[in-house]
């Protein structure tokens, strides 16, 4: 199975060793370090704390997406692999939102004392 590299050349890798394309890894690293810098600098902008924290977590999710897509090459994987990975994420979100009302809406004084 051929794939095109960033410089436009088409290569035919050995399926056993490499069946996917290769993004520009250095560029991905620079983006990741810039995003790290952004997550550290966001509190310097005098934003409301909730907004700053939301930005920091959005940046973290963005960074995770970049690592998983480019370094782990998920972008070249068949759709069934995407489904397997996102099924795990879906299960976690279902757990979180399933339990969230119990945690957030029960009066604190009724909760078992630690």
């Amino acid at each position: 199975m051929e794939h095109t590299q960033d410089n436009g050349s088409v290569v035919y890798p050995d399926v056993k060793t490499d069946y996917h394309g290769h993004p520009n890894y250095f560029r991905v690293l620079i983006y990741l370090l810039v995003l790290l810098g952004l997550s550290l600098a966001v509190f310097e902008f005098n934003l409301p704390a909730n907004v700053a924290i939301a930005i920091v977590f959005a940046v973290a999710v963005w960074k995770i997406g970049m690592v998983i897509r480019n370094f782990m090459h998920l972008r070249y994987e068949p759709i069934l692999i995407w489904i397997a990975v996102f099924a795990a994420v879906f299960i976690l979100l279902a757990f979180f939102w399933g339990v969230f009302p119990d945690v957030s809406m029960v009066h604190r004084e009724l909760a078992p004392k630690l």
Binding site: M1, E2, H3, T4, V10, V15, K16, Y19, H20, G21, P23, L74, R75, Y76, E77, P78, I79, L80, I81, W82
Partner: peptide, 19 residues
Amino acid sequence: MSNSSTTVDIRQTPQGRLG
């Protein structure tokens, strides 16, 4: 990049990667 996720067949995924 010419490869996108939808154009690759799961049967071509090496077993190690799948694992």
